[in-house]
Structure formats: structure tokens, C-alpha cells
Nucleic acid binder design. Structure first.
Lengths: 329, 329
DNA sequence: ATGAAAGCGCTAACAT
DNA sequence: ATGTTAGCGCTTTCAT
């Protein structure tokens, strides 16, 4: 791979002139520019990002941290981030952390080392301490999951309210025994959604029964299947289920198969996220729709502002309840 | 962010010595090492990958190109790549190309510019010309989709054979009218799977009817829904459908809803890929299982060998037919 | 065992 | 309009 030096020699000019041509500086004569451009072509030269970044302390690369690409929830968010980034001449790199702090650390280092200009983290288990530390001197935005009372700017929705509304919808349909399939409450969103669930029940004087609250380890389908099977083994079975993620709700739907129960007649189900698959199930899934694309766009814009040195404020976006077959009893 | 110079000053040694400590060189006295390590801690110093990479022409970063993260097919492959990479002290960066050549080009440049040491491409629409050119001087491996007769090493399965076996399974169940939901035949795998489909039909003297071969634009669920609706509008409806991707097959399953037809009694369906969803549908989906994790591991190993300068040979892995409810008529 | 200095590829300030 | 040169942060050769 040729370097700028060789191009300069071939064109019979200085490296500075080559650099000027590369950066479209005005002060180069057409004749010289042509010579340089020819040399570039002949040598098949491409400028080294490494040298350039080292010099400029800028990479125009953004990092996007996500726990796992297997959850379709992230797909649309990433589209939003990607489109916004590209519109601003940035590129994004997706980093799957598996919620592993060590792996996270590697990516944090890429930021510290100027290999990327900023980071959007969607990892709920991110090491708060390290992240806050990083955010002190580097552009960081949290997306979806965030740090309550923390100093890092975030974009998210009101999970408590969304859960409250979802459960209220179930209550209005006449359900009095409503179960919750929650994920691990170490996640903020899990605590918030539980809180919304309880607020709705309390408001209608319905009992909050621990046996109707199931906690899953992960958000995979299989966790939802498992959760539903447990609920169906109870003496007093719920007549409705609110799952904090579509993947869990879809698993729950599967878990009902073979039990003889009918959704929604015997059991109503609501999910959360409105992933594309939630419209493919049979019955289709009622769910809370997060504005995922917009969330991505917003996060990317916030990050780019932050890179420019501007102050950014956290944002809470609106959600919607999408009513489909699984609650049309 | 402190640099090596400041660490050296603080520790009262030269930058060379700091570098030695950083790289665990043997020839540093314990006393000096301690001084340096203290300085590093006090200054919160982290070595710059940029400076290091520029000097070493090595980044220990691998690029993984994929058209879209929305297809769950890639999930397990990426796990395989990631684990293998980490076991060899490499990190991976996921690059979503949206099958956009311009975007691809950006990532190719990262390779040329030594920002990453090699690339695994899973993008079927990748620009063959540019890729082959890149592969002449940089480590490149193709995964899943490949270039027939090309010079770039690949890891894949025998799509023709898999399709042949899938269709034969349908024939053995007594089906004589078998439709194909294919993707765009600009993709090699699409041509291969069609070829396997036709081979099976011919072998049993069944007619190949153009109206039973539907081509979709993308691999989204919705494309499968659409395809199935078209097939159900035909005067002579098929009794079985082979879809070249699980996402399409799942969409097809959805497209049948409301038609009054029963799967598998009236219509058998086979998909391809064995994505995790395929076991969540109702009925569960018969499908061809690609060894995705192994594919990822193999691709990563090949790439790492290639980076080391070793010659690598292309690999064709085995597949399996997973029989589930959608063909248990 | 340690230090001085060159150089990886590039940009920009300064000089002409 | 173009050239000279310093320097971004690091590693490594060559001295000592």
C-alpha cells in the first residue's frame, strides 16, 4: 500500500501538496492537482485513516454497544442511529457485549484511544462506574436503559406509565387476575414496569400476588415458555399476562399451546416493544410500541452534538399501546 | 488523557522504558517497573491504540460485514466468530451494510487503512470486483454466501443438496404440487436452492410450474406473507411450500391464517436456517438447519490463519433437516 | 537495564 | 501556489 510520500515523489510535489489535494484545499493549481490525482490513481493510493486520525484526533466513527443482537428490539434503533450517523458523515460500529464487563471495557478503550469519537450504549448491565468515568471526558449517550439520577444523558420512554397503561387495558377487559412476566429486577426498566403494573392493580383494588409475578433470567423465547408453564401450574391461574418484552410474550404464547386454553378467550396477553415478529404470531400480539427508530435518531443526534462540544439534555419519548388479537377477547 | 511522555516524566524514566513495561519486556528491573506502574495508575494512563497501530501496522480488530442485523440467521454465526476471535485476542466489529456498496466501501477502506486486520463478509450482494481486489492484499473470508469460481476463501453449506433433500421430504409425504418461495436469484444461494428444488421434482417426474415459483424482494416476514397470499390465489393451489428462509416461511405461515387452510394437513411448509423463532411458531416449523455457530467459528479461524499469512482452503459444512409440526401431516 | 532517536502516515503552521 | 517541518503516541534499534 502506497503512502503519501510515494505519491508526492511520483507526482513530483511535496507531501503537503498531496495532502491539500486529498483534503480539497482551494489553493492548488489545476495542473498540480491533476498530476497528483494521476499519481494517486497509478499507485492505487488510499490515505491511511490511522495517520489521519492520529493527527486529527478524530475518527468519525461511532460505537454502538448492545448486549446481544439476537433481540430484534435493537434492530430499528440501530437503523435510526445508522441513518443519522451517515447523514452527518459518521459511521457506526456495532459492538456486542454479551453484557460482559470485560468486553465492554475493550470498547470503552477504543473511545479513550480515539479509535472512535463517541459511544451510544444500550447495554442495561453496563458498568455504571466505568461508564460515568468515561463520560466525564468523552461523548457518551445512553439509549433505552439509563442511569437514574446519573449524569450521563439518555433517551428513553416512560416505562412505568407504559406498563400502567398496559395493565389498565387488561383490567378494563374484565381481568382481575393479572400476572407479570418480568425480567431480572436488576434492570431499571424491569423495576419501572413492575411499579406500573402494581400501580394499576392498586388503583382498581386488585390484589398483588407474588405467585403471579415471575422473573426470568434472560429475554429469550424459551424464558417466556418456561414462565408461562409455571403460571399454568398454579392452583389459581391468572386470566391475563403482561410480559415486559415481546420475546417473553411470544414464548408465553407458545407455552400455552397444548394446555387447552385459548388466547385471548381464556387468557389475554400483552407484550412490550412491538418487534416485527409480534405481528406474525397466531394470535397476533398486543404490545407496547416504543418509538425505536426515533429513539435511534435522537440518540445519534445527541451524541453528535455532544462530540461537537454542545450540552445535551436527556429525552423521554412517547409510546403507544398497539391492540391486537391477543387481547381481543 | 495522559500520553506515554507524561508517564515517563512522572516516573522519571524514558518513554522507551515505559513502552517496555507496557509490553512486558523482560529487561526491566523490578524497581523501575514499579515506578512506572505507579505513574500509570496515578495518571490513569491508557496506551493509545492509534499510536500503537500506526507503529505496528496491526489493530487486532476484525470486521464482520452483514447486510442487516434484522435477520436472526446471523446471530449464531456472529457468536461463533466472536468467541473464536476473543480466544485469539481479537475483537470484532459488526458492520451493517444494508447491501449498500457505498457503505461496504467505507468498511473496505478500514481494512486497507489498517484500522482492522481482516474481514469476514456475509453480504451476498457484496461488490465482487472490489472484494476480490481487496482480497489480493488483505485477509478476507466469505461466510455463507460466496463467489463461485472466485479466489476468495469461503465457508458455506451445500445449498443445492439441502434444498433437494427438503423438497424430497415433501414429496415423500405425498405432495405433488410443491411451491417454492425464493428470494432474488441474483443471490447464489437462491439459484442453488432453486436448482435443488427442481432436481427433486424432476427425479419424481413432477412438473415444474413457473406459477408455483415466487420471488421475494427481501427476506422480511412480510415478504413471506405476501408470497403465500399470491400462491393461495392461484386456481391450482400447491399442497406444500418450500421457502428458502425461515423468515419467509414464518411469513407464509401467517399468510395462511384466515384462509381456512390447515398446516400441515392442507399445506405443508419447510423453511431454511433454523432460526430460534422457527420453534416458536404455531405450528412449529420444519426447516433446514445450517451449522451456524460452527460456520462462524470456522470463518474466524480461517481469517486468523489468513492474517498470519497462512494459506486457507474453503470449507463446505454439513446441514440437517429438522422435522417439526409444519410437515407432520 | 536504560536512554536517545528514528519513523509509522498524515496535517497544518509557517515560510517562500 | 507550493515546500519545509514539527509533531500526533507509540515501538524498536542502537548505544551506553
Amino acid at each position: 500500500m502506497a503512502n503519501i510520500q510515494q505519491v508526492a515523489e511520483k507526482a513530483g510535489v511535496s507531501v503537503a501538496t498531496v495532502s491539500r489535494v486529498l483534503n480539497h484545499a482551494a489553493s492548488v493549481s489545476t495542473k498540480t492537482r491533476l498530476k497528483v490525482e494521476n499519481a494517486i490513481k497509478e499507485l492505487n493510493y488510499e490515505p491511511s485513516m490511522l495517520g489521519r486520525n492520529l493527527r486529527n484526533s478524530e475518527s468519525r466513527l461511532l460505537l454502538v454497544l448492545l448486549p446481544s443482537i439476537s433481540n430484534p428490539f435493537y434492530t430499528e434503533i440501530i437503523n435510526g442511529i445508522q441513518n443519522t450517523a451517515i447523514a452527518n458523515s459518521y459511521n457506526i460500529l456495532l459492538c456486542e457485549t454479551d453484557s460482559n464487563p470485560q468486553r465492554e471495557n475493550i470498547y470503552f478503550n477504543m473511545i479513550k484511544n480515539k479509535l472512535a469519537d463517541g459511544v451510544i450504549s444500550m447495554d442495561p448491565t453496563v458498568n455504571r462506574q466505568k461508564l460515568t468515568e468515561l463520560a466525564e471526558s468523552h461523548p457518551v449517550i445512553l439509549c433505552s436503559e439509563y442511569d437514574e439520577g446519573g449524569s450521563v444523558p439518555f433517551v428513553t420512554i416512560d416505562s412505568e406509565l407504559a406498563a400502567y397503561q398496559a395493565v389498565k387495558h387488561l383490567i378494563r377487559l374484565g381481568n382481575k387476575k393479572i400476572a407479570l412476566i418480568n425480567s431480572d429486577e436488576k434492570f431499571l426498566y424491569a423495576r419501572q414496569r413492575r411499579s406500573g403494573y402494581e400501580r394499576a392493580l392498586k388503583e382498581f383494588d386488585l390484589p398483588i400476588r407474588e405467585e403471579w409475578i415471575y422473573h426470568t433470567r434472560d429475554l429469550e423465547f424459551q424464558n417466556g415458555v418456561q414462565a408461562m408453564r409455571m403460571l399454568l401450574e398454579l392452583e389459581e391461574k391468572p386470566t391475563a399476562v403482561f410480559a415486559v418484552s415481546d420475546t417473553l410474550a411470544i414464548g408465553a404464547l407458545k407455552g400455552i399451546n397444548g394446555s387447552g386454553l385459548h388466547v385471548p378467550n381464556d387468557l389475554a396477553i400483552i407484550g412490550f416493544d412491538n418487534i416485527s415478529f409480534s405481528n406474525m404470531t397466531n394470535p397476533t400480539l398486543t404490545t407496547v410500541s416504543q418509538p425505536m427508530y426515533k429513539m435511534g435518531v435522537t440518540a445519534a443526534n445527541m451524541l453528535i452534538m455532544s462530540i461537537k462540544g454542545e450540552q445535551v439534555e436527556s429525552v423521554v419519548l412517547d409510546h403507544d399501546l398497539i391492540i391486537r388479537e391477543s387481547t381481543m377477547g
